[in-house]
Amino acid sequence: MEYESILIEPVLTEKSNVMREQNRYVFKVDPRADKLMIMEAVRRMFKVHPVDCNIINVKAKPKRLRGRAGKTATWKKAIVRITPGETISIFEGA
């Protein structure tokens, strides 16, 4: 797996916005990636120094569409903490 393809997109929510103040950044990542790979990917892409990484496998939610049962896709969420004082620019304002 390429490091470039591990991080899929940043997760922009109210919660992730608050977490940013604690130097924790949230990403949607490739489900095959593990914590170390994710930290390495963040290090390479944003030139910052990750301290640790938590992972959540977001479960599928049951949804109904026209009475038929279905599920939303599962995905892997990674919360990466980086060294205090560093920032990742794609989360900050332009």
Partner: peptide, 17 residues
């Protein structure tokens, strides 16, 4: 109204981006 944020809670930095 943006996904991930309640209405009116979007920080202006996100909007600007």
């Amino acid at each position: 109204q943006i996904d991930g944020f309640r209405k009116g809670k979007v920080p202006s930095s996100v909007l600007e981006r």
